[in-house]
């Protein structure tokens, strides 16, 4: 084992979240380790995605959401007044279940983010596009058709394009919300390989309902559970190996052994 001090990308403290009057998340406290893959698992509807979206304030887009508690990103609470949400989302990118390529060319999809942030120089954009597509291991497949519509790509390619699109804005963290649930096994495999490659330079947080996936790719696993009529709580969090082989909480054990969910 290599010995190094683990740094945290996020430190979430006593996070509570309400949709209107309905409380969805209760008292979540967790550290997300830098340059590692953290998987968030739990049954459907347990608030995994909601929690993930707290990390780049995507929940701001939804009316009627109220959040209490603190989420420190690189030491600063992102819910403090005066947080630049636009800058936060540049630093904390997000991949969704549906790849949702914009209806424009492959090139323009990847260049979209850099252009948002004011990069106009064509050579510079060319470089970023190539570099991002290479990192997302899509370059070889698309280098001769950069000007074709992104909608012409297959589902798996579209998801890698979505990853390239996020990488192009040079984030520090990539949040992935069930990125493979719409993909076939071969495409899933490629995305998983890619995640492991990317972790050297990025912190990755992935929400998945697929426990094998969590076990295969993640370094840390958090188990969220919303018991009947209760908001979701963090039941157990630890190194993935420990969670899957030696869970401390009986509910975790029941879930990972497939007794419910």
């Amino acid at each position: 084992m290599n010995i190094k001090i683990k740094e945290n990308a996020f430190e979430v403290r006593n996070l509570n979240l309400w949709y209107g009057k309905h409380k969805a998340l209760e008292d979540i406290t967790i550290d997300i380790v830098k340059n590692a893959i953290t998987a968030i698992i739990g049954p459907s509807g347990c608030g995994k995605s909601t929690f993930l979206r707290c990390l780049n304030r995507m929940n701001d887009l939804i009316d009627g959401i109220r959040i209490e508690g603190k989420v420190y990103f690189e030491g600063k609470n992102i819910y403090d007044e005066g947080t630049d949400v636009v800058l936060l989302r540049k630093r904390v990118g997000m991949i969704f279940q549906q790849p949702n390529p914009f209806p424009m060319s492959i090139y323009d999809n990847v260049a979209f983010g850099p252009r948002l942030h004011g990069i106009r120089d064509r050579n510079r954009l060319d470089e970023i596009v190539k570099d991002s597509l290479e990192k997302a291991s899509l370059w070889k497949e698309v280098k001769n058709k950069l000007n074709e519509s992104a909608l012409s790509l297959s589902g798996g390619q579209q998801q890698r394009l979505a990853i390239a699109r996020v990488l192009a804005v040079e984030p520090e963290v990539i949040l992935m919300d069930e990125p493979c649930s719409a993909l076939d096994p071969a495409s899933t495999q490629r995305i998983e390989d890619l995640m492991v490659e990317l972790k050297a330079n990025y912190t990755i947080v992935i929400v998945t309902h697929n426990m094998q996936q969590a076990a295969r790719v993640s370094d840390f696993t958090a188990f969220l559970l919303a018991e009947e009529n209760e908001p979701a709580k963090l039941i157990e969090y630890g190194e993935t190996g420990q969670i899957f082989t030696n869970p401390k909480d009986i509910r975790t054990e029941n879930y990972i052994t497939g007794r419910f969910g």
Binding site: M58, V86, G93, F96, N100
Partner: peptide
Amino acid sequence: VPYGYKEASYGLGATKWQ
């Protein structure tokens, strides 16, 4: 316009007007 497009755009750090 699919909501996912907007989400993806905000997720890349776009402002509302962008």
